[in-house]
Every structure is written in C-alpha cells, then in structure tokens.
C-alpha cells in the first residue's frame, strides 16, 4: 500500500523530480568552483586541504590573474558598448523599414551565428596577419580582440533587439504621433523607452559572450592575457584558487544584477495592487 502511494507520488511529480535533477546537474560545477575557492591549496587546487578565506581576501594573489581579469573587463565593456550601438541600429533598420537588400542583410546577420568559432577565429587572424604591417592596430593584441568580439556580438544584439521591436504595439507610436509628438519625439519618448529593456538585455548578452569567449580570443590575442585564456593556460600547471574566487564572484555579481532587477520590478508591481 505504502509502496503504491509512493509510486503514484513519483509518477505524478515525475516532471518536477526530473527538473530538480536537471538543476542539480547544472549546478554541480558551480558548486565545485565555489567550494574550491575556499580550499587552502598549495600549488594545484585539486585536492581538498582545508577551509580558508585567504583566497577571497587576496583575489589577486596569483600572478597575472587580475591583469587578465582587467583586460577581460575592459574588452568586454568596449565590445559591449560598440556592438550594442551597431546592432541596435541594424535592428531598427530591419524592424522598422522595408528596403532593397533586406534578405542579404538578414543572411549576413545569420551567418556569424552559424559559423563555428574556430573558423571565425582562424579567418580573422589570417586577415590581421595579412595587414598587420600596414595597420599597426591589426597586430594581434588588445584591439584585435575588441574588433573580434564586436563582430560576433553584433548578430546576437540584432536578434535580441529586433525581437523586442517586433513585439511593440505599432499603435503606441501612432498614439504618440496623434498626441502631437513628431517623429523624433515619438522615438525618444515612446519607442526608445519601450525598446530599452531589449537593448539592456542585448548588452548583457554581448558582455557575457565577450567576457566568456576563449576560442576566437585565443586566435587573435597575441600576447595579451584574458581571464578565460589565463584559466586555460594555467590549468595545465594547476589552477590557482584565485581563479575560482574570481569565477565565483562573477557568478554572484551577475546573479545579483539579474535577481535584483527582477525583485525591483516585482516590488513595483506589488506596490499598487
């Protein structure tokens, strides 16, 4: 009887049990990263040698880790800023106008998303090497990474912002025009504020793509270190626990931003109801 009850409970909640297991699976490596950021490790951070806070109090303790992190942040911010602007402009052109060559533009937006990173990285490096003696900033390094990151982020920005534009009710802009707002005012007072969440989402996406990229970066970085590159190269000798500290903090910061913004919008809704 009891067994029967249990079987029924399992079958009724099968999907929830499954989802719970799925989430545990997703978070195992995150948990591991957090755990070993507190490891009192010697050289390699492989075996648990006891709890310490010293890695967290001194995140730059390992050589070059903070230099790599700084580069990643700088590259990420620059690439995000530029790719968000360029992608948003394209999204408005596609979402709001009909023009000749739209199909070609759509294909050119789609192709980078359908091209493996290793192909983009290799081809871009070929270009840079070809012209490096003509154009000094094509020498693999900081700027070539920024150029590459903007390139592969644009498509994702376009897709994200375009979706937001497409979901806008055209009557809102018509209502603005009807209420004496000319084209410019309509755009600034109605269209832009309504598309803004999409642009913000696109910017977050672009930043996380840039910050996390290894393959294309590795091809085009020359001797500049980024955070993923640092992890990859040091992993062969043994990863310092400071890498876990930084990885974990990035995770916490991102979660804080996302959950915080959700919390605020929920509070705002509740305040009136």
């Amino acid at each position: 009887m009891n067994q029967n009850k249990f079987a029924r409970w399992v079958s009724r909640n099968l999907i929830k049990i499954y989802a719970t297991l799925g989430f545990i699976y997703l978070f195992i490596p995150i948990g591991y990263t957090f755990l070993f950021s507190f490891n009192n490790s010697l050289k390699s951070n492989l075996i648990w040698r006891g709890f310490t806070l010293s890695n967290w109090s001194n995140p730059c303790g390992a050589p070059d880790v903070c230099n790599a992190l700084g580069n990643s942040l700088k590259i990420g911010l620059l690439a995000t800023l530029i790719s968000t602007i360029l992608g948003t402009l394209i999204a408005f052109a596609i979402g709001r106008y009909s023009f000749r060559g739209k199909t070609l533009v759509n294909i050119l937006i789609f192709l980078p998303m359908a091209t493996p990173e290793v192909v983009m990285g290799a081809s871009l490096l070929t270009l840079f090497l070809n012209y490096a003696n003509l154009l000094p900033f094509f020498t693999p390094g900081f700027w070539t990474i920024v150029i590459a990151h903007i390139m592969f982020s644009i498509s994702f920005v376009v897709v994200t912002v375009k979706a937001r534009i497409a979901s806008l009710d055209p009557r809102l802009e018509q209502a603005a025009m009807d209420l004496y707002a000319d084209e410019k005012q309509t755009f600034l007072k109605v269209t832009l504020p309504l598309v803004a969440p999409g642009i913000a989402g696109a910017a977050l996406l672009a930043f996380s793509l840039s910050f996390d990229d290894f393959i294309i970066t590795n091809f085009n970085s020359g001797s500049i270190n980024t955070f993923p590159k640092f992890i990859y190269t040091t992993a062969q000798r043994g990863l310092p626990p400071q890498a876990n500290v930084i990885g974990a903090s990035m995770f916490l910061i991102a979660m804080f931003i996302v959950l915080g913004s959700q919390f605020i919008s929920r509070r705002r809704e509740k305040a009136y109801s």
């Binding site: 009710d169 009557r171 809102l172 018509q174 209502a175 009807d178 209420l179 109605v190 504020p193 309504l194």
Partner: peptide, 14 residues
C-alpha cells in the same frame, strides 16, 4: 487638431 481613442487604448505602458 485631431485626437484618437485607440482600440485597446494604446496607453503608454512605461
């Protein structure tokens, strides 16, 4: 000098 009350209102949600 014309104003419209739109179907489904089209109030600015923001």
């Amino acid at each position: 000098p014309v104003n419209t009350v739109f179907q489904n209102y089209a109030l600015f949600p923001h």
